[in-house]
């Protein structure tokens, strides 16, 4: 099946070369980091996780979001999604690979990564995250590959795939739940220490993942002769709308608990993110942009006319992706480290 990937027009090859160049640039930067150490990243002993881990967190969401097309098709027999489940599965594969790479480049001693397997430690959430992510990757590779090659040959996929598909659905939930547990179980990081971390992660994942999928469908329709279908995009739009409303709802719950209880530790990070603390406010404009995009997305998604129109839906999807990316891929991880354990503010910027 791979030989199909080696055929295409000039534009296709140009795009591949462009992507290869970006990958080469990334590899060169990584070599520099490998020699110099992580000091080139701008992280510090106070903000000890930065962009790498926050991108990892965001992409786990994208990977889990793919399940939002798989689930209706296989469990609710929503036939229309048959055409795009493959897109969802391969989106998940790409996202999980990126997750694993983001963790890898974040390690101070990458050559020792096998220690995680050589000295298995069930009490470490990171150990479980390694397991669930790798299994999710294998599941999607096996399922995606078999379903796609069956479809090419015009036959039904082999029946042993079916149980794997059913397994992959709860597994998608597990990868993001375990990722949330990385944060939600740490004493002394008040911003992360919340029971709705996992639901919040899932809600933003099920908004951002399908939003990206909608954009993907629109692009695929433009550049190829494969049409994912109008009906499908409409249904996905509905899923994005529900998930994004839930996401904002959960965020507001956090704000309520923090400020109505008035416990200082719980409010500090919110104040830092949205207003600045002790004169530090590097992330403040970003967080307000996130809020602005959220409002735009909410309006476009809730009003039926704009949700059903593909142009405005596309705008809404871009807004959803930007809003959740800033919220989760910037504010959540970095904000959790500010203020530091001594209630001092040390900022981070990559």
């Amino acid at each position: 099946m791979l030989e199909r990937a080696l055929e295409g027009n000039k534009g296709y090859w140009g795009w591949l070369i462009f992507l290869l160049l970006i990958m080469g640039g990334g590899a060169a930067c990584y070599l520099y980091q490998f020699n110099e150490g992580l000091r080139i990243t701008g992280m510090s002993r106070d903000v000890s996780w930065g962009f790498y881990i926050s991108q990892f967190t965001y992409l786990v969401g994208i990977a889990a979001g793919g399940v939002m097309v798989v689930l209706p098709y296989y469990i609710h027999d929503h036939k229309a999604f048959g055409k795009i489940t493959i897109l969802g599965e391969f989106l998940a594969i790409a996202a999980v690979i990126m997750c694993l790479l983001f963790i890898f480049v974040d390690l101070g001693n990458p050559v020792r990564i096998m220690n995680v397997i050589m000295y298995p430690t069930p009490n470490s959430i990171l150990f479980w995250d390694m397991i669930v992510l790798n299994i999710y990757l294998v599941l999607n590779l096996v399922i995606g590959w078999n379903v796609l090659s069956a479809e090419r040959k015009g036959v039904h996929y082999p029946s042993w795939i079916k149980p794997l598909i059913y397994l992959s659905i709860p597994w998608a939930f597990s990868i993001h739940t375990v990722t949330a547990f990385l944060y939600a179980g740490l004493p002394g990081r008040h911003f992360w220490l919340t029971a709705i971390m996992a639901p919040r992660f899932l809600a933003s994942a099920f908004a951002a993942g399908p939003a990206l999928l909608i954009l993907l469908c629109l692009i695929v329709r433009k550049v190829s002769n494969f049409d994912p279908g109008k009906e499908q995009i409409k249904t996905l739009g509905g899923i994005v709308a529900y998930a994004f409303i839930l996401n904002i709802f959960f965020l507001l719950l956090e704000v309520f608990t923090a400020f109505y209880s008035g416990i200082p530790g719980h409010t500090h990070t919110f104040i830092y993110l949205f207003a600045g603390l002790d004169g530090f406010n590097k992330l403040t404009p970003w967080m307000w942009f996130s809020a602005l995009f959220a409002v735009i997305a909410l309006i476009l998604l809730i009003v039926p006319a704009t949700r059903r129109k593909e142009d405005t839906l596309a705008v809404a999807c871009v807004a959803v992706i930007l809003s959740t990316w800033i919220d989760k891929g910037l504010g959540l991880v970095i904000g959790g480290f500010i203020p530091n354990p001594f209630e001092r503010v040390v900022e981070y910027w990559p």
């Binding site: 000890s48 944060y183 004493p187 990081r189 354990p341």
Partner: peptide
């Protein structure tokens, strides 16, 4: 391996 999970977990810096 330098994952720095312990640094995130330590409430005392």
């Amino acid at each position: 391996i330098g994952c720095r999970f312990c640094m995130a977990a330590c409430p005392f810096g």
